[in-house]
Design a protein around this nucleic acid. Structure first.
Length: 858
RNA sequence: GCCGCCGUGGCGGAAUGGUAGACGCUGCGGAUUUAAAAUCCGUUGACUUCACGGUCGUGGGGGUUCGAGUCCCCCCGGCGGUACCA
C-alpha cells in the first residue's frame, strides 16, 4: 500500500512520536534516590512476563499481554500513579546454545542480536516502558545478583520451629559439623535419579521433561550428583499463601495439585526373617484390615535383601527390565500391571496376617516411602494388580450399614468400616483417626502429610547459564566470596554435548582448576533462575551494592507509603502480572519460592511476589489452529505494523475478545479497527491534494449538544471502568459509539473532542498525540490527566420502560424516570399491544422496576 | 480416568436475574465515481406475514422465578492441563 492510499499517515507520525517519547524520556519512572522522585505519589507496578528473545522475533501473542498492561499503565499514570511498567529479556536458554553448536557462534552474540530485534519490535509498538530499566538475565551485573541470591539459598536452612529460612551460620555457631550443615542447606548436592537427556546434554527438572519430550528429545532416568533446591520445605506455605492472592482459581488449583498434599499415615510392617521393618505411606489407614499384599518399587533398597533365593533371578530380571524401560515412555507403554513376587512376607500389624511382598513398577520410589500396602477391594490399581496375579481381595468398607457388596466395582469413597475389628461401624473419617491413634499408641506408625512436590533439580550441564558460585576441595563444596561475583563462564570453542553427563564447562580446564587444589563447580543454573527475581531488579536496575535497595523495595511493594498503607489482604509486590498459562506451575511456583526465602531472610518485605495474576488467552491462526511455522498461519507483528500501523495492531489485539480468552486472529478485524482509527483521524483532518489539513469542523466553542455530552461522559465513565476490570474489547466498542456521535456533528467542539482523545490515548497513543498536537495542544496527551466525567450530563428525565406481559416483551413506553407504579401500570394498560394480551384475563400481579421494566402477570 | 475452562447469528464477540445478539467483520441494497478503491447511508438470527405483526431461538433435558444466556440438577460436545502420587 502506498502512503497516499493509507487511511491516515501512521507511518509518518508513529515513528516520530516514538522517537520523541524516547528522547524526552516521557515514560521515565522515578524511584527512590532519583531527583524527581515523589514518595507521596502512590505506586502501581504492572508487569509482563518478559520474553525469551528467540531468533523468530516477536509473535502476535506477545503484544496481546503487553498492550493490555500498557493501557493499564498509561491509564494509571493519567490517574496520578507512579507507574512501574518495565520490559526485559529472559535471555539464557537452550536455543542460543543449540545454534552455537551448529555454527560455533558464541551464544552471547546470537542473544545480543535477538535482543536488538525484540527491542526494535517493541519500540515500534509504542509501549510506555522506562527503557532505562531494561534488563537481560544474561547481563553480567544481573548474573552477579542471581548468583548472590543462590548464595543466600546455599547459606540458609529451613528452621521447622519458626517455619522459615534462617542462615546456617546459626547452626555453625551451635557447633553443627560441616556434614550436618550441608545436609540441611536450601541448596544442596544429592545423588538422585534424575531426568537426563543425552541429545540435549543436560538433566531436566521434573517440570520440564514433558516439554522437551514433546519437542522430540529423548529423556532417561539416571542417578547423578546434582544441585537441588529444598522447595519441599515450602510446600505448605506455597499452598496456604495462595489464598491471599488475586489469581485465577484455576491457576491456584493447578499449583495446589502440583504440590499435591495428601494426609495419611506411615505404617510399619515387620518382615518375616528380616530385622528392619518396611514402612508404607497410605491415605487410607482405615483399610489396613483389607491389605492382602504389599508392593515395593523395583528400585527400593530393601528388595535385594528380602528376596528369597528362589525368586532372586526373576526379581533381578524384572528390576533390569524396569531400569531399561525407564528411557521409554513408561506411561504409554506400560498401562498393564506387571510385577514379581519376592518370596518374602510382611506381617499386617493389626491382624498378624501374612502379606506376600511383590515388586511392581506401578509403585514409585520417589513418592512416599517407595512401598505400599495393597488393598485391592478399595483401590483400583491394587484391584487390577490383584486380578492379574490372582491375589486375595478383602472388603473392609461399605457404602452404608448393611449395604450389599458392589461386585465388579472398586469402592473408593468414604463409607462404613466392616471386617475391621475395632474399626467396625465407624465412618471412614473416624476409622482413619482411630487407626492412626492405635498405630501411634503401639509405635507401629504415625500421622503423615505427604506432598507430590519434589525438591527442585537446579543444575544443568549446559554452557549458556549462570555458573554456580561454588568451588570444591577434598569432596567438599564451599561458596566463593561475594567479591568474586559475577562469576562468568569462560568462552569455549566447542559447545557440543559430549553425550556424557559431564558438564560442558569442565572442558575449560584453566577456568576450572584453581590454586591450592580448588576446583570450580562446572554445572550451570537453569533458565528459571533469572526469571525468579527479575521483577525485583526492575525496581532498582542499576544498583551495584544490592540486588535491590531497601528503599526501592519498600516503595514498590507499597510499604514505604505511610499515608496509603497496602490493602490488608495485599501480600504480593507486583500489583498486576500478565502472562500465559504455560507458566502456571513452573516459573510462578519457582518465583514464589525464591521470594519467600528472600522474605524469610529479611531481604524483601512481602511474602509473595505477584498480588494479581491474569492469564492472557492464546491467539490462534486464522484457521483456528495454534500458530506455527509448519502450518504457515503465523502472523508477524512487523507486517501488521507496516500495513495498518502500531495503533491498529494494539487496538485489534484488544478488540478481538476478552483478554483471558483463546481467540483466532482475523485480518479483516484489523481492518475494522483501522477504519475506526481513520474515522477519528478524519474528524480532525481533511485531505486536500494528498495533504492532511485541519478540519474546519473543529471549533473551540462551548458544547450545547446534550446528546453528545451524554454519550461522551458515558464513554469517559465506562471506558475507565472497563480498563480497571481489563475489559478492553468493550471499552473500545464504547469509544466507537462515541466516535459516531462526533461524526454526526457539523461543528465538533474542541474541548469535548480533546477529552475523547485523552480517553483513547492509552489504546492508540500515536494517533491521539498527533491529532492533539495538530489541534494546537502544547503538552502531550500521555502526560494529561484522565478526564473527570460529569454525572449531571448522564441524567435522563424520560426513560424507555419495557412493558412485558407474562415475561414477554409487548411494548415500550417513554415515561418519567421516577414514575410510580400506578402511573406506569395505567400507561401500560392503555397500550393496544398490551391489551391484546391482557384483555380476556385477570391481572394477578404487577412487577415494576422503576426506570426499567413493568411486567404484567395475567 | 481425574481436574480445569468453554458451548450465544455466516464469523469475533455484547448482555448487575429484566429489550438476547451491543460493537466489529462478512454479505446484500443504495449514494458518490467515467470506473474502481476509499468514504457515506440502509439492511443482515430463523421461520412466517402483502403489511402491522406473530412464533421460535443462547449445546440438550429438567428445575427455581413474575421473568433464566445468566442461578440449581442431570446429560452431550469441544479445548487445555495431568496422569499408576498409594
Amino acid at each position: 500500500m502506498s502512503d497516499l492510499r493509507k487511511p491516515f499517515p501512521f507511518s509518518e507520525f508513529e515513528p516520530a512520536w516514538q522517537a520523541r517519547w524516547e528522547a524526552e524520556k516521557t515514560f521515565h519512572t522515578p524511584g527512590p534516590g532519583d531527583a524527581d522522585f515523589d514518595p507521596a505519589k502512590p505506586k502501581y507496578y504492572v508487569l509482563d512476563m518478559f520474553p525469551y528473545p528467540s531468533g523468530a522475533g516477536l509473535h502476535v501473542g506477545h503484544p496481546e499481554g503487553y498492550t493490555a498492561t500498557d493501557i493499564i499503565g498509561r491509564y494509571k499514570r493519567m490517574r496520578g500513579f507512579n507507574v512501574l511498567h518495565p520490559m526485559g529479556y529472559d535471555s539464557f536458554g537452550l536455543p542460543a546454545e543449540q545454534y552455537a553448536i551448529k555454527t560455533g557462534q558464541h551464544p552471547a552474540i546470537t542473544t545480543a542480536a535477538n535482543i536488538t530485534t525484540f527491542r526494535r519490535q517493541l519500540k515500534a509498538l509504542g509501549f510506555a516502558y522506562d527503557w532505562d530499566r531494561e534488563l537481560a538475565t544474561t547481563d553480567p551485573e544481573y548474573v552477579r545478583w542471581t548468583q548472590w541470591i543462590f548464595l543466600q539459598l546455599y547459606g540458609s536452612y529451613y528452621c521447622e520451629v519458626d517455619g522459615k529460612a534462617k542462615p546456617v551460620t546459626e547452626l555453625e555457631a551451635m557447633g553443627w559439623s560441616r556434614e550436618q550443615v550441608d545436609g540441611v542447606r536450601l541448596a544442596y548436592v544429592a545423588d538422585t535419579p534424575v531426568w537426563w537427556s543425552p541429545d540435549l546434554g543436560t538433566v531436566l527438572a521434573n517440570e520440564e521433561v514433558e516439554e522437551w519430550k514433546a519437542k522430540g528429545h529423548t529423556v532417561e532416568r539416571r542417578p547423578l550428583r546434582q544441585w537441588m533446591l529444598r522447595i519441599t520445605k515450602y510446600a505448605q506455605r506455597l499452598i496456604d499463601e495462595l489464598d491471599a492472592l488475586d489469581w485465577p482459581e484455576g491457576i491456584k488449583l493447578l499449583q495446589k495439585n502440583w504440590i499435591g498434599r495428601s494426609e495419611g499415615a506411615i505404617v510399619s510392617f515387620q518382615i518375616v526373617n528380616f530385622t528392619s521393618p518396611i514402612e508404607v505411606f497410605t491415605t487410607r489407614p482405615d483399610t489396613l484390615f483389607g491389605a492382602t499384599y504389599m508392593v515395593m518399587a523395583p528400585e527400593h533398597p530393601f528388595v535385594a535383601q528380602i528376596t528369597t533365593p528362589v525368586q532372586r533371578t526373576a526379581v533381578a530380571d524384572y528390576q533390569k527390565a524396569c531400569a531399561s524401560k525407564s528411557d521409554m515412555d513408561r506411561g504409554d507403554l506400560n498401562k498393564d500391571k506387571s510385577g514379581v513376587f519376592t518370596g518374602a512376607f510382611a506381617i499386617n500389624p493389626v491382624n498378624e496376617v501374612l502379606l506376600p511382598i511383590w515388586i511392581a513398577d506401578y509403585v514409585m520410589m520417589s513418592y512416599g516411602t517407595g512401598a505400599i500396602m495393597a488393598v485391592p477391594a478399595h483401590d483400583p490399581r491394587d484391584c487390577e494388580f490383584a486380578q492379574r496375579f490372582e491375589l486375595p481381595v478383602v472388603e473392609v468398607v461399605q457404602r452404608s450399614v448393611g449395604a450389599t457388596p458392589t461386585l465388579f466395582e472398586v469402592f473408593c469413597d468414604a463409607g462404613i468400616a466392616i471386617n475391621s475389628g475395632f474399626l467396625d461401624g465407624l465412618t471412614t473419617a473416624a476409622a482413619k483417626a482411630t487407626m492412626i491413634d492405635w498405630l501411634e499408641a503401639n509405635h507401629l506408625g504415625r500421622r503423615r502429610i505427604q506432598y507430590k512436590l519434589r525438591d527442585w533439580l537446579f543444575s544443568r550441564q549446559r554452557y549458556w547459564g549462570e555458573p554456580f558460585p561454588i568451588v570444591w576441595k577434598d569432596g567438599h563444596h564451599q561458596a566463593i566470596p561475594e567479591s568474586e561475583l559475577p562469576l562468568l563462564a569462560p568462552p569455549l570453542d566447542d559447545y557440543k554435548p559430549s553425550g556424557t553427563p559431564e558438564p560442558l564447562l569442565s572442558k575449560a580446564r584453566e577456568w576450572v582448576e584453581l590454586p591450592d587444589g580448588f576446583l570450580r563447580e562446572t554445572n550451570t543454573m537453569p533458565q528459571w533462575a533469572g526469571s525468579c527475581w527479575y521483577y525485583l531488579r526492575y525496581c532498582d536496575p542499576s544498583n551495584t551494592n544490592r540486588f535491590i535497595s531497601h528503599q526501592a523495595e519498600a516503595y514498590w511493594t507499597g510499604k514505604g507509603d505511610a499515608d496509603r498503607p497496602p490493602a490488608p489482604s495485599a501480600t504480593g509486590m507486583v500489583d498486576l502480572y500478565v502472562g500465559g498459562t504455560e507458566h502456571a506451575v513452573l516459573h510462578l511456583l519457582y518465583a514464589r519460592f525464591w521470594h519467600k526465602v528472600l522474605f524469610d531472610l529479611g531481604h524483601v518485605s512481602t511474602p509473595e511476589p505477584f498480588q494479581k495474576l491474569v492469564n492472557q488467552g492464546l491467539i490462534l491462526g486464522e484457521d483456528g489452529q495454534k500458530m506455527s511455522k509448519s502450518r504457515g498461519n503465523v502472523v508477524n507483528p512487523d507486517d501488521v505494523v507496516s500495513e495498518y500501523g502500531a495503533d491498529a495492531l494494539r487496538l485489534y489485539e484488544m478488540f478481538m475478545g476478552p483478554l483471558e480468552q483463546v481467540k483466532p486472529w482475523i485480518m479483516q478485524g484489523v481492518e475494522g479497527v483501522s477504519r475506526f482509527l481513520a474515522k477519528v483521524w478524519r474528524l480532525a483532518c481533511e485531505e486536500h491534494d494528498g495533504e492532511w489539513r485541519l478540519s474546519p469542523k473543529i471549533q473551540d466553542v462551548p458544547c450545547t449538544d446534550k446528546d453528545l455530552l451524554r454519550v461522551l461522559n458515558d464513554t469517559i465513565k465506562r471506558v475507565g471502568e472497563e480498563i480497571e476490570s481489563l475489559k478492553f474489547n468493550t471499552a473500545i466498542s464504547f469509544m466507537m459509539t462515541c466516535t459516531k456521535a462526533f461524526t454526526a456533528l457539523d461543528v465538533v467542539p474542541l474541548k469535548e473532542f480533546t477529552q475523547f482523545l485523552t480517553v483513547l490515548n492509552p489504546f492508540a497513543p500515536h494517533l491521539t498525540e498527533e491529532i492533539h498536537q495538530r489541534l494546537g495542544g502544547s503538552t502531550m496527551l500521555s502526560e494529561a490527566a484522565w478526564p473527570i466525567y460529569n454525572p449531571a450530563a448522564l441524567v435522563r428525565h424520560e426513560v424507555e420502560i419495557i412493558i412485558q406481559v407474562n415475561g414477554k416483551l409487548r411494548d415500550r413506553l417513554l415515561l418519567a424516570k421516577d414514575a410510580d407504579e400506578a402511573t406506569a401500570t395505567a400507561a401500560a394498560l392503555a397500550c393496544p399491544k398490551v391489551r391484546d394480551h391482557t384483555d380476556a384475563k385477570t391481572i394477578r400481579k404487577i412487577v415494576y422496576i422503576q426506570g426499567k421494566l413493568l411486567n404484567i402477570v395475567a
